[in-house]
Design a protein around this nucleic acid. Structure first.
Length: 135
DNA sequence: GCCAACGTTGGC
DNA sequence: GCCAACGTTGGC
C-alpha cells in the first residue's frame, strides 16, 4: 500500500466537504507530475493525508482513501481518482509542526517552494502525522 | 493581498 | 532546445 499527500484549498474543497460527501472525484489537477502519480501509482486502498493549503493554518486536516483508480477527465490529458473520507483530525497539524517534527525532514510539503499538489509520503511519515493529528 | 518560487508556453 | 514572459501556487 502506498501513502500520499493531496492538497486542496478549503475554500474550494475542505475535509468537512469530504466528510459530508463521503467520497469525491479528485478533478482539476493540472500538473503533469501530480497527474503521473495519480495515473501510474495510486491504487485502491492507498491512504491520503488531506492537506489544507492557503488556510489558517495550512496543514494536514485529516485522512482519505483512494476508492477508484485514475480515470480520464473530460479534458485531455488529465485524469482524476476518487477519494473517500476516512477521518478528520481534532485539529489541523500545521505546516510549521511538520517542519519541526523529527522524521518529517524529507517530506516534500516541507520543502521550500514545493507546489506539487499530489505527493508521495512514506509509511513512517504517514504514521507520524496521523499520530500528531489524533492528539 | 503580496510576492517569491515554480511550471508552462511559445518565439526564435 | 533555450529561455523570457507569463500564469499559478501557496505561505505569510
Amino acid at each position: 500500500m502506498k501513502y500520499w499527500l493531496m492538497k486542496s484549498e478549503p475554500s474550494a474543497y475542505s475535509i468537512d466537504d469530504l466528510k459530508r460527501d463521503k467520497k469525491t472525484s479528485w478533478n482539476g489537477v493540472r500538473n503533469y507530475q501530480a497527474r503521473n502519480y495519480m495515473r501510474d501509482e495510486m491504487r485502491v486502498g492507498d491512504k491520503v493525508l488531506f492537506y489544507a493549503s492557503n488556510a489558517d493554518p495550512a496543514g494536514v486536516s485529516g485522512i482519505a482513501e483512494i476508492v477508484r483508480e485514475a480515470h480520464p477527465e473530460k479534458e485531455e490529458p488529465w485524469v482524476m481518482v476518487d477519494l473517500a473520507f476516512v477521518e478528520k483530525f481534532p485539529a489541523v497539524v500545521p505546516l510549521d509542526t511538520l517542519k519541526t517534527t523529527r522524521g518529517l525532514e524529507n517530506m516534500v510539503v516541507t520543502r521550500k517552494g514545493s507546489r506539487l499538489s499530489v505527493q508521495p509520503v512514506t509509511k513512517p511519515e504517514f504514521d507520524i502525522v496521523t499520530k500528531l493529528g489524533r492528539k
